[in-house]
Amino acid sequence: MIDTNLLQLICFYGFAAVTVGAALAVISLKNSVHAVLSLVLAFFSTACIWLLAEAEFLAIALIVVYVGAVMVLFLFVVMMLDIKMEQVREGFIRYLPVGIIVALVMLAEMLALIGVRAMHAHVMGANPATVAGLSNTAWLGEALYSQYLLPFEVAALILTVGVVVAVALTLRHRGDKKHESASEQVRVNPRDRIRVVKMAPSRPDEPTSSEEPLQ
């Protein structure tokens, strides 16, 4: 019989290793479509880690929103771009040593985090959702709209700003642009467009003498 804690730990390390590996692949793969797919994998395994931490809603949201919508969009964009990969990767080898050092420092800290968590396991306490006797989603919703209401609203402001900036940077007012006015189109009267002219009926003229006879 395997201890559940041990099983969880093994799963955690497994998912974490996949996440890190996929993240490395994102920045090192030559083909950008493959890189995006690796990013999808990284998100997916992160979602698995969240599932382990009993944060079901976040895990599902990550998959539905990021993997399902954002990454697919990303993939479309990447497929449409014609990127010269050699140019993009020129700096990669040059900055690799620095990058490796930074990565190693981060790794050391991650290990420190795991070590400390093992030592001070009590710090994190029990899962608040379980304590409150609620499902994870219900608890998350309650925390978001009561305790974290203000940050939630500020996040909404940030999204608003994102829209304003996007419009400000991309919208171009051009003087020579032709507009269609839908309301004018709807209001238009048939009489403004077509004039029915009454004409006296007439017979087609006789062939004139100027017309050359057929040879």
Binding site: V154, V165, L169
Partner: peptide, 13 residues
């Protein structure tokens, strides 16, 4: 974090 992001996001734009 959010205050900082709100400020810097506007600055980028």
């Amino acid at each position: 974090y959010l205050g900082l992001e709100l400020m810097t996001l506007c600055s980028y734009g």
